[in-house]
Amino acid sequence: MNFDLTNALFGLTGGILIGLSAALLLLANGRIAGISGITGSLVALKLPAAWSENLIFLVGLIAAPAIYALMASPPAIIITSSLPLLVAGGVLVGIGSRLGSGCTSGHGVCGMSRLSKRSILATLTFMAVAILTVTISRLLIVN
């Protein structure tokens, strides 16, 4: 995709909003804004005590882009993956984020910002594997 200074500024602004959301959840409720942890807690046989808070957080997360689409232009979401790839990617993201106890938000934002060695290692690992995956996929498709 095209990248210019506008994308950088919107990226930074969006990132600050994500940080403010995580800071609000931490300081007001004492909770870590890890999306895989919050979501994963709701697909378990034994629900956690804070399940309703987790569900309400997800309602907000899901509603925000729809509200934004009503007031401004709907966000472009370009997905070119085939059905098998979507299923495989979803299953791997689900299993991996739960097994590794975090995803881009939990390890990447909340963990790295408190210099957690676990989160830094996890983030470096999933970044490296994802970059490798994209690189190999592109080579396989092009050649």
Partner: peptide, 30 residues
């Protein structure tokens, strides 16, 4: 578990470009 889980997550993320937050945020608009 930490490293293996992160690697499996990275593989899935790289295949589609979606991780849990953006996937859920795209539920009604994607």
């Amino acid at each position: 578990r930490l490293v293996g889980g992160a690697a499996i997550f990275g593989l899935g993320w790289g295949l589609v470009g979606l991780c849990p937050g953006p996937a859920l945020a795209g539920l009604l608009v994607g």
